[in-house]
Design a protein around this nucleic acid. Structure first.
Length: 884
DNA sequence: GAGATCAGCGCGT
DNA sequence: TTACGTGCTGATCTC
């Protein structure tokens, strides 16, 4: 029987894992302060490779130290590298402990790198005959070891994503044989290992030369045949360097390793040691997996038992009379337009699956899905509802929406993928779509493959398996009402809004577009004349060169890659040079053109001249919705030129009106209510202008009449700032006052609104104790950084603690209003079209206008009872533009 | 040369 | 060094 030897390049994988999780490093620490990111990433990689390869023998090789036979030969080898961060180096001893607990040996050899150990053992195994060898590394140089018996897997960006190299694959990708990789490296050198090859020879040239000559030796023997005079000169001049680079790049396959192949047997996890280790590292998900694996191994096989659904056996679906789990698979993200590729349905241990969406029209399937008594468990109710609705099937009685529940339990790390969410909740017997279908351009769904059907079954099984536990968690969070009364209901309200869509007049947009095009061409010419040369105005880099190098305008702000050219900078520079104002105009118009004219035209549906956005219900950290394809929550309104875009948004029937109602200052009203600040509440109860009142209070004026527009503007900035948890620095830069003044404003604000001051202190204290904050409806946001040692992270978490209950409660309120609204207008012709955070937009026939003028605001302002009144303002007109 | 990802920018509440 | 988002273009990296 053949054995399979897995050889892992410990250092390179640890490095990759560490840098893959670099930004999240502070989240990966155990209670004693040890960083654990590299250990975590390494273990994820191990899990994957052990599962995929099922090796019989395994070794992890490490570098022994800084000096090796290569540094003796060339002192600068790997010179100039930054010192390994202590956050990583402190992890190595524990990493080795992990590897041993997983039943795997580690090995290192003085004077040699891990590469050489791996090369040597791979060679021994190949010579022994009955081995297959798999090498896992982060370093593509090791692909020189591929052969018909040895494959090399190189980690891509993350650590768990591996690309497999066989000799064929190496040749396809690099254009040369594996053994010729060292010839390439000899010619071009290696920047990261800090040794040069031949000057002016890069990838392209090196490959060409190696394809022509095979080896460097042969190249120099036939140097006369090299085409290109300069190239030849460089080759001759750098011959010694090339030969040295060749040697440095060559993996030593005869290193004096002292372990033998028969010492490498893979022992499997030592559960006791591993449990102890995971506990010390704080690896909850791995701990969960340990226990799940224990239970699951038995039913791994039984697991993939399913029946392929057909017209013949569909009657068997009648056995489900109580509840059923259902998943509708679509090949694309946009469920309004995506093809349907299959579905799975079942419960308990009876699972049916098909790649034929036509079976949705089978009466037994329809009866099940539309039954008002049989409960349905799904992942993403809105998506499923819309997908079925397109087939004329109205999904009814959704019980468990795994996506939605997962989002409510924890808004961070949520995902639209069943597998990913399942893993998050400790269920591992399902793959992610990316694992099964691939990603990006390589993504491909093959509905004919058995893997496809199995994947769908695993998905429904995951949903079924997590149903009870996640509902319990929801209850433990006191979030069941949030789920049942708000989120699951709003999902269907949103579905209908999306399906209904809003009509967009393409001709209006096209008219605007051609005007913009002319105007852009004009301004462009002016700018080129002023600059004295042509360049790409849309490139901040090129623009920066022109403005700050050629024209020598003062550099007011920098970004991490160069000069800042953002509006606030350009506005300050505009008086200095006319070109700047032209750039600002150009920017404004090209934004309108690309994002709104061209962008919207692209997504108008040809059949109904409408756009059908998708509201993402499970994305934001605060409970707001977001909108995509197209985003209808950022249609211009502030500048008149931009606002004209709204003329293209029209009712879907002639003579109807676009009707818009928005909450006035909902966030400040929420603030007044939850802080229980009497002064702020009084202002709202008395119907005062809140910004004027704030100005009067903080500037100590006798009455609101004394407040000048400038003072009101400043007070408004403070009000906003408080909602966002601003600092004096931020307030100063925002309003153009000094930092000291800003500090005084904030002090005065807290004196006048003491309830607000107390709230900001209390909520941060709550967050420190509980690690989360909540909205009125018990929507929860975790703040893991609230006790961070990093000032920036901690400050951010503190601001979030103040803002999220405000912004999130406002989101709760409008969602409740929308649910009530859908019910209030259900027998009318009026349709609710859009939600823009504090605003609802409708289309209304003339005969209902008088009714909705009363009805809509009253539904909105009665959505919830606060300690202050909610105020709603309405506008209408023949287009969205005119609803002002 | 195409595709993926990052950076900068600007649109909304 | 003020919260939450989408999406465009260009630059850069990767294959």
């Amino acid at each position: 029987m053949t054995k399979k030897l897995l050889l892992i390049d410990g250092n390179s994988i640890a490095f990759k894992a560490f840098y893959a999780l670099y930004t999240a490093m502070d989240k990966f620490t155990n209670p004693s302060g040890l960083h654990t990111s590299a250990i975590y990433g390494f273990n994820r990689m191990l899990d994957k490779v052990l599962a995929d390869e099922k090796p019989t023998d395994v070794l992890v090789a490490f570098d022994a130290g800084k000096t090796t036979f290569r540094t003796k030969m060339y002192a600068d080898y790997k010179g100039g590298r930054a010192k390994t961060p202590t956050e990583l180096s402190e992890q190595f001893p524990f990493l080795k402990e992990l590897i041993n607990a997983r039943g795997i040996s580690t090995y290192e050899l003085p004077d040699y790198e891990a590469d050489d150990i791996i090369g040597t053992l791979a060679k021994k195994a190949e010579e022994a005959g009955d081995y297959q060898v798999v090498i896992v590394t982060g370093d593509r140089d090791l692909t020189q070891l591929t052969s018909d018996k040895t494959t090399v897997q190189v980690s891509k960006k993350g650590v768990t994503e591996l690309e497999t190299y066989t000799p064929k694959h190496v040749e396809e990708k690099l254009g040369v044989k594996p053994s010729q990789i060292i010839e390439i490296k000899g010619l071009k050198g290696d920047n990261s290992d800090n040794y040069p090859g031949v000057e002016k020879v890069g990838d392209k040239t090196a490959v060409r030369l190696v394809q022509q000559f095979g080896t460097i030796d042969n190249l120099y023997q036939n140097i006369d045949q090299v085409s290109g005079k300069k190239l030849k000169e460089h080759l001759i001049h750098d011959q010694a360097q090339a030969e040295r680079a060749h040697t440095l790049a060559t993996i030593n396959r005869d290193a004096p390793v002292t372990v033998s192949l028969d010492q490498l047997k893979y022992q499997g996890d030592n559960i006791d040691k591993l449990t102890d280790f995971y506990e010390r590292m704080g690896f909850k998900s791995f701990l969960a997996k340990l226990s799940v694996d224990d239970q699951d191994h038995a039913d791994d096989q039984a697991d993939i038992q399913y029946t392929v659904l057909s017209a013949k056996n569909a009657a068997e679906l009648d056995q489900f009379t109580d509840e059923v789990t259902f998943h509708l698979e679509m090949s694309e993200e946009n469920y309004h337009t995506s093809p349907l590729v299959g579905f799975a349905i079942g419960q308990g241990d009876k699972w049916y699956v098909t790649n034929d969406p036509e079976l949705l029209h089978n009466q037994h399937v329809i009866d099940l899905l539309t039954s008002k008594t049989i409960k349905k468990n799904v992942f993403d109710a809105k998506r499923t509802y819309v997908g079925l609705y397109r087939q004329g099937i109205e999904l009814a009685n959704v019980d468990f929406d795994m996506l939605l529940v997962s989002y409510l339990l924890n808004t961070t790390n949520n995902s639209n993928d069943v597998g990913t969410v399942a893993h998050l909740h400790g269920f591992y017997n399902v793959k992610t779509d990316e694992e099964v279908y691939g990603k990006g351009a390589k993504r491909h769904i093959d509905p004919q493959s058995p893997a496809f059907l199995a994947h769908l079954v695993h998905k429904v099984k995951a949903i079924d398996a997590l149903h009870d536990g996640m509902f319990k968690d929801l209850d433990a969070h006191n979030q069941s009402k949030l789920y049942w009364d708000i989120e699951i209901k709003i999902a269907f309200v949103l579905a209908h809004m999306e399906i209904n869509g809003i009509k967009v007049d393409a001709a209006t947009l096209e008219g605007m577009g051609s005007k913009f095009k002319e105007r852009l061409a004009e301004i462009e010419q002016t700018i080129f004349q002023e600059a004295g040369e042509e360049f790409n105005i849309g490139s901040p880099k090129q623009l920066g060169k022109i403005l700050f190098e050629k024209l020598r305008l003062p550099i007011l702000k920098k970004t991490k890659t160069g000069y800042s050219t953002s509006v606030d900078v350009l506005e300050k520079l505009a008086p200095d040079a006319p070109i700047v104002q032209n750039v600002l105009d150009y920017r404004q118009i090209s934004k309108l053109q690309s994002t709104y004219v061209d962008g919207l035209l692209k997504v108008i549906h040809p059949d109904d001249s409408k756009v059908h956005t998708r509201y993402l219900q499970t994305l934001t950290q605060t409970g707001r919705l977001s909108s995509v394809d197209p985003n209808l929550q950022n249609i211009p309104v502030r500048s008149e030129e931009g606002r004209l875009i709204r003329q293209a948004f029209i009712p879907s029937h002639p003579g109807w009106q676009i009707f818009s109602s928005d909450y006035s200052q909902i966030e400040l009203r929420v603030l007044a209510s939850i802080t229980d600040d009497q002064n702020m509440q009084d202002a709202f109860k008395n119907g005062e202008d809140i910004h004027a009142t704030t100005a009067r209070r903080i500037f100590g004026l006798p009455s609101n009449e004394e407040v000048t527009p400038e003072l009101r503007r400043q007070a408004k900035a403070v009000n906003f700032g408080i909602v966002y948890g601003i600092s004096d620095f931020g307030l100063a830069s925002n309003t153009g006052i000094t930092r000291k003044q800003a500090h005084q404003f904030i002090e005065r604000y807290f004196e006048e609104y003491p309830g607000v001051k107390k709230y900001t202190e209390d909520i941060v204290e709550f967050a420190r104790n509980h690690r989360y904050v909540e909205t009125i409806a018990h929507r929860r946001r975790y703040l893991p950084d609230i006790n961070s040692k990093s000032f920036n992270l901690r400050s951010f978490a503190e601001r979030t603690a103040m803002n999220t209950p405000i912004q999130g409660s406002a989101a709760d309120i409008i969602k409740i209003a929308m649910i009530n609204m859908a019910d209030a207008i259900k027998d009318m012709k009026t349709r609710m079209l859009l939600q823009v955070h504090d605003e609802l937009i409708f289309e209304v026939p003339d005969e209902e206008l008088d009714t909705v003028k009363q009805l809509i605001p009253s539904v909105m302002d009665s959505a919830i009872h606060l300690n202050v009144p909610l105020k709603v303002e309405s506008h209408w007109g023949k287009t969205w533009y005119d609803a002002k």
